[in-house]
């Protein structure tokens, strides 16, 4: 098996995990290994089960059958907080989820730094703002200098960066990124990919959910393709060509066939005209 070649042990593993919603099987016997300091790309078309899979990984759903392993031991994530406490951080498509909060405040939601004593204990805004800005700048977001700015005033890439910076700051061991580049322009997407590489170099295990094959191939170390809730393929960097991956993602149906079909269609139209 491929995993025997890896020097380090997986930090997080799924063994034959299935998830059934009222008769509908969203995940079917999926096994995955997530390694520290590597980027695992979860590829698949819409409805392939990517969202369900990351919800199982982040504690939102419990698997119907199969087991999870955390740092080599069988584990059960009872809640998102439980997964969060172990060091699994999830960043959603639009990054910072509290658009009307300031950068400093949203950075510390749920773990507010305080100063003072007893009834005079109060939110340490200065520390919160400085830390949030410093951590974002460390990821190359130099345009952000004021922790009092609202999250909603940041660009899509900056919001992703603020959420990733937060995860890194609080010592995330596994970082789940759900379509981080989907809503971004080319330049911003490049920046987010660079930040992903930085997180990886810090030894964080990154799970990147995407259906952009180019982005996946740029940063991915290993890849898993989901089709209708099943793991259709699992391979390492360089083991498949871009065409093979694209074909897989289209549901196994060869893209070439589709192209041919399209050609005949446009051909018909051209003839009519």
């Amino acid at each position: 098996m491929a995993k025997a070649k890896d020097s380090s042990a997986p930090i997080l593993a799924l063994n034959d995990v299935s998830k059934v919603f009222g008769g509908y099987r969203a995940l079917h016997d999926v096994s995955l290994n997530v390694y520290p300091g590597q980027v695992l790309c979860l590829l698949g078309d819409n409805g392939a089960g990517k969202s369900t899979l990351i919800k199982v990984l982040s504690g939102f759903h419990q698997p119907t059958s199969g087991t999870l392993e955390w740092e080599g031991e069988e584990a059960n994530f009872k809640s998102p907080k439980d997964a969060n406490d172990r060091g699994i951080a999830t960043v959603h498509q639009f990054g910072g989820t509290f658009p009307l909060m300031t950068i400093g405040r949203s950075f510390f939601v749920g773990v507010e730094p305080t100063k003072g004593w007893g009834p005079f204990k109060r939110f340490n805004k200065k520390y919160a703002n400085e830390t949030a800005v410093r951590e974002m700048q460390a990821l190359g977001i130099t345009r952000v200098t004021d922790g009092d700015r609202l999250i909603g005033s940041l660009s899509g890439g900056e919001r992703q960066a603020s959420a990733i910076a937060r995860a890194v700051h609080f010592g995330a061991k596994v970082l789940i990124l759900d379509e981080p580049t989907a809503a971004l322009g080319v330049k911003e997407a490049t920046h987010v990919l660079r930040i992903i590489m930085q997180a990886k170099l810090k030894g964080i295990a990154v799970i990147l959910v995407t259906h952009n094959v180019t982005h996946a191939l740029t940063v991915g170390d290993h890849f898993a393709v989901l089709i209708r809730g099943e793991k259709a393929d699992d391979f390492k960097k360089g083991e498949r060509t871009r065409e093979q991956i694209t074909d897989l993602m289209a549901g196994g149906e060869a893209m070439a066939e589709l192209e041919e079909e399209l050609n005949t269609l446009t051909g018909t139209i051209n003839r009519v005209n």
């Binding site: 998102p80 969060n84 658009p99 510390f108 749920g110 109060r122 939110f123």
Partner: peptide, 28 residues
């Protein structure tokens, strides 16, 4: 005003109103 600006509970209240699911996930 003290609760809202100076305590963590204020931050929680803003977070809950901003996005309840995410607020829950952070352990609030």
């Amino acid at each position: 005003a003290w609760i809202l600006i100076k305590t963590k509970y204020g931050n929680w209240i803003y977070a809950i109103g901003g996005d309840m699911v995410s607020a829950k996930a952070t352990g609030i």
